[in-house]
Nucleic acid binder design. Structure first.
Length: 604
RNA sequence: UGGGGCGUGGCCAAGCGGUAAGGCACGAGACUUUGGCUCUCGCAUUCGGAGGUUCGAAUCCUCCCGCCCCAGCCA
């Protein structure tokens, strides 16, 4: 269509500065196949901030036909645990399922970095060529032999030395930003002496903290990470993967860059707080004069989400102090919490895509996340009727004992999904919120004299509202129905301004609903007055329990995890963890947008 | 006061010297058997500030201001 007046712009892939770099590296042949990695430390559960990093790394692998290795960054035996490894792998699989399964880089169970002459290498096993072998995540601890060999090599070339200073001395001698550091008294040791000492460190001759292996770089560097950083420390501790094989463990800077190298990572993406480590990352790689192509590190801004905290330390505190029920509490920003609450993986990916990737500090509004969740759920959730705060309505002219069944669509967005049958009778439950004895302006719902539609059934007109004499609370609504309006409009052309959801009283099932609000009242829970604790910003109303909710019969067949929309109320999931036979529990994933609530708010 | 990073609408975010994309939020309207969904329209004469270069600057230069990160044998 060259003569078309409008030139259709080709669908452009999302662009960010990192993808620009990758694209450029590919174009000029600097790399032939992209390898990224997602390297959580197994000392906590994944959260939405990890999801951003995961989507970036897997998204790039996917977009450029590469692979993204899942790697446990487990170099600190004191803090890590297998319990966390399992949950991380599970969450990663969940996030990637149906999207980037083929890009998930795992290794054959038991494999460690392979020595190849002086080089060490370990590549992902493509799922297709696993040949029935079990696969597992990469682990920095599987490179301990390689890392140790690299340490030895640094000593041999005079680029590392064993230091006997205590932790306090090292701290003091490092100097403050602005003033240079002081060289270790042991900096001048011969390679032979260093080798001997390092071997004895490894052999367990010295207690924890007695000596360290340090890089010999520059104590006068304005970048404190170049002031002879510690590479290895002594820790007589059992590691969840390597057991008691080691009593010296590498530190992040040594382990991370070399793990990247071992796995053949091309683009190593991490968050901004590590930019000052990049010179060290590059220094270590270059100091080793390695035979293969070196990885390159790039940094992006971590995600901050309004009304929640993201640091593992703080999330752990919420769990330990019982402020939430656990890591999978539906109010938690953890992947497990969000999964339990019914957030679809696709929505999380969409969210990650929409927030973008940049180097600017950011704090994303909850509204965007919720928008992504609603957009996905609107297409996939089964429609059901549920009355959360029931009030009885008696249809005076509907025969006692009569029951009709109406067939309602499971999802009006997608007629292929199917239908279900809903019983209708003389006494129904409707939402307390949908009735007012004295209607405020713009209130279209039920009040004396007003006619409304009952979804998928008849029109009813309110004849009276009975209230409790003392509290004034509505106890019962009386109404009449018009048989002519069965599943249709009124033949005489009357209009109705509202449609209400309802549940037949004699057919309803009882359930508990849990309604959630943000965990923290403040947008930035860390922004508390001097010295105060972030927990003081906790939202006392973050969880609301509703017992005695009335649900339509079809919900007895609800499957935990299946997305539901309680019409006019919100999206819900049945909770697999706490539902009991005959006593189901439903969690509110997210509310529906509510135009009336906005009108009400503005008016009052 | 050392080094590094960053400042584009309420929140994200494009923009890479040619005259401010897009999304969310918000507002107005249409449609509607969910006050949902969908659709339409509106929403930065201006890019932290001040100078300068240029025919032309958010983009280049200079100075200034503000915010964030770094002194773990954590990651």
């Amino acid at each position: 269509m060259p003569d078309s007046p409008i030139t259709e712009r080709p669908e452009t892939e999302r662009e960010d500065f990192i993808r620009e770099i990758v694209k450029d590296d590919l174009a000029r042949g600097a790399v032939s196949a992209v390898v990224t990695r997602f390297p959580p430390e197994p000392n906590g559960y994944l959260h939405i901030g990890h999801a951003k990093a995961l989507c970036l790394n897997f998204g790039i692998a996917r977009q450029f036909g590469g692979i993204c290795n899942l790697r446990m960054d487990d170099t600190n035996p004191a803090k890590e645990d297998v319990e966390y490894e399992d949950s991380i792998l599970d969450d990663v699989r969940w996030l990637v399922a149906g999207w980037a399964d083929d890009c998930l880089g795992l290794k054959a169970r038991g494999d460690v970095a392979r020595a190849d002459g002086r080089d060490f290498h370990l590549a992902a096993v493509p799922p297709a060529s696993a040949h029935g072998r079990a696969l597992e995540p990469f682990r920095a601890s599987d490179y301990f032999d390689a890392l140790h060999a690299f340490g030895v090599r640094l000593i041999e070339s005079g680029k590392a030395f064993v230091c006997d200073h205590t932790a306090e001395e090292v701290d003091r001698m490092r100097g403050a930003p602005g003033e240079g550091g002081q060289e270790s008294h042991y900096r001048g040791r011969s390679a032979a002496e260093n080798l001997d000492l390092f071997a004895r460190m490894r052999a367990g001759e010295f207690p924890d903290g007695a000596r360290t292996l340090r890089a010999r770089i520059d104590m006068a560097s304005p970048n404190v990470w170049l002031r002879d950083p510690v590479l290895y420390r002594i820790r007589h501790a059992s590691h969840h993967n390597t057991g008691d094989r080691w009593c010296i463990y590498p530190l992040y800077d040594l382990a991370h860059g070399l793990s990247d190298y071992i796995e053949g990572v091309t683009h190593s993406l991490c968050t901004l707080e590590f930019v000052s480590h990049r010179p060290l990352y590059d220094w270590l790689l270059e100091a080793l004069a390695l035979p293969r192509a070196l990885p390159h590190k790039y940094e992006f801004a971590r995600l901050n989400l309004a009304h929640t905290v993201m640091s593992k330390r703080k999330l752990l505190r919420l769990v330990q102090e019982g402020r939430v029920s656990g890591w999978d509490d539906p109010r938690m920003p953890t992947i497990r919490g969000m999964r339990r609450r019914g957030y679809p993986a696709a929505a999380l990916r969409d969210f990650a895509d929409r927030i973008g990737v940049a180097r600017r500090e950011n704090r994303v509004e909850l509204a965007l996340l919720e928008h992504c969740v609603r957009e996905d759920l609107n297409r996939h959730a089964l429609r059901r009727m549920a009355v959360l705060d029931p009030v009885r309505v008696v249809i005076e002219n509907y025969p006692e004992g009569k029951v009709e069944e109406f067939e309602l669509a499971d999802n009006p967005e997608d007629s292929a999904v199917g239908t279900r049958r809903v019983a209708f009778s003389r006494e129904l439950w409707i939402e307390r919120d949908d009735v007012r004895e004295v209607p405020p302006p713009k209130f279209f719902r039920l009040s004396p004299g007003v006619e409304v539609r009952l979804r998928g059934a008849y029109w009813i007109r309110c004849t009276a509202v009975r209230t409790d004499a003392t509290t004034g609370e509505i106890t019962e609504v009386r109404a009449t129905y018009d048989p002519e309006t069965k599943r249709s409009n009124a033949p005489d052309g009357r209009k109705v301004k509202a449609t209400l959801h309802w549940v037949s009283a004699s057919h309803a099932i009882d359930a508990e609903a849990r309604l959630y609000e943000p965990l923290f009242t403040a947008e930035d829970p860390d922004d508390v007055p001097d010295g105060a604790d972030f927990t003081q910003g906790l939202n006392p109303r973050s969880l609301e329990l509703r017992q005695g909710c009335k649900l339509e019969r079809a919900l007895v067949d609800a499957v935990p995890g299946q997305p539901l929309q309680f019409e006019r109320v919100g999206y819900f999931v049945q909770d697999g963890a706490e539902s009991r036979p005959g006593a189901p529990v439903f969690l509110r994933t997210v509310t529906l947008k509510d135009a009336w609530a906005r009108v009400e708010k503005r008016g009052g």
